[in-house]
């Protein structure tokens, strides 16, 4: 066990994966010599050489497109989009190609790639450094979508993603890179080193995709969250005094349907939380699932707390970000319904 920040855990996952499998190739904008604008690939080029870890031209479709070609050859590319907000030029390659290679070729060609991208707000990133585009991936058949919420999961899930035979979109909440953030922006940041969640297994220790994690057991209401919102939800539970059960989904696709339905059947209430905009967000899928699978157990309408249906603003950051007060209010409303 070693205590790591999320950045260190991600870097360590790369290191472990590259050491155990020569086919793992890491590239993207500024990831080589410089080690990434968030330091997630620092030291890899020095250790593994320029043919294993290298800088690319600023072309997201070029990065993902070449990664797909490499995967078809037999390598295991793990590439970076500098910000999730800038993945759109690669969207055609991700949706039309990576996601469908296995299906359309009946397994003749496969696409074991990982596309990492820093995601989420809470950092005064404005419109193009704060987005949470996960619903644009979960809607695509053939993709797996992962969002870790802590260093331990980040390492284990990234190792599993790199091993996975299918394309994985790996969304890293950049608000959590260097410390734990629970939405109380007026309080000082909590260092990862003080959290048990920063205790990362050494060496190769993958965490299977498709399994959620119970973060807090509770009787009153099930809270479904992922990424930064896991910590915000826990804070809201503490602030509200409601005995909420907090589930960190970790993998959005494939989804841990069993854990979700078992929890809601127990509590009879559910609040879904995400940073992404509300309409047609991943929350809508979660609400539909809960409604369909747990209808007779529900004692209140399922609520959603999400980003507003606006582009992510700059000055209005904390009015936009679904912080603990908004979640606590939703918990209260669901309990009173």
């Amino acid at each position: 066990m070693a205590r790591m920040t999320m950045v260190e855990a991600i870097r360590d996952a790369h290191d472990v994966a590259m050491a155990r499998d020569d086919r793992v190739i890491v590239f993207g904008e500024d990831v080589g010599y410089f080690g990434g604008v968030f330091r997630c690939t620092a030291g890899l080029q020095k250790k593994y050489g320029k043919s294993r870890c290298f800088d690319t031209p600023i072309s997201e479709s070029g990065i993902v497109g070449t990664a797909i070609g490499m995967a078809a050859y037999g390598l295991r590319p793990c590439v970076e989009m500098q910000f999730a907000d800038y993945m759109y030029p690669a969207y055609d390659q991700i949706v039309s190609e990576a996601a469908r290679l296995r299906y359309r070729s009946a397994g003749e060609f496969t696409c074991p790639i990982v596309v990492r991208m820093p995601t989420g707000g809470g950092i005064f990133g404005g419109q193009t450094h704060s987005q949470s585009p996960e619903a644009l991936f979960t809607h695509v058949a053939g993709l797996k979508t992962v969002v870790p919420s802590n260093p331990r999961d980040a390492k284990g899930l990234l190792l599993a993603a790199i091993d996975d035979p299918d394309p994985v979109i790996f969304l890293e909440p950049k608000r959590l890179y260097n410390g734990q953030f629970d939405g109380h922006y007026d309080k000082p940041i909590v260092s990862w080193k003080k959290s048990e969640l920063s205790e990362v297994d050494e060496g190769y220790a993958p965490i299977p995709l498709g399994r959620a994690k119970l973060r807090r057991e509770g009787r009153d209401v099930t809270i479904l969250a992922y990424g930064t919102m896991v910590h915000v939800a826990l804070a809201a539970v503490a602030d509200s005094g409601i005995d909420g059960e907090v589930i960190d989904l970790r993998t959005l696709m494939p989804l841990d349907i069993d854990m979700i339905t078992a929890s809601v059947r127990k509590t009879g209430r559910c609040v879904v939380v995400h940073e992404a905009t509300l309409t047609s967000g991943f929350g809508a899928e979660l609400v539909a699932l809960v409604q369909q699978e747990c209808f007779w157990h529900l004692e209140a309408p399922v609520a959603r707390v999400a980003g507003w249906d606006t582009p992510y603003p700059h000055a209005q950051e904390w009015h936009y970000f679904p912080g603990p007060p908004r979640i606590a209010k939703a918990l209260q409303a669901v309990m009173e319904a």
Binding site: I25, S61, G65, T66, I68, G69, M70, Y73
Partner: peptide, 12 residues
């Protein structure tokens, strides 16, 4: 562009 990636992989 995938062809280029395949070729890069061969070189790598």
């Amino acid at each position: 562009v995938q062809a280029v990636g395949w070729a890069m992989a061969s070189a790598i």
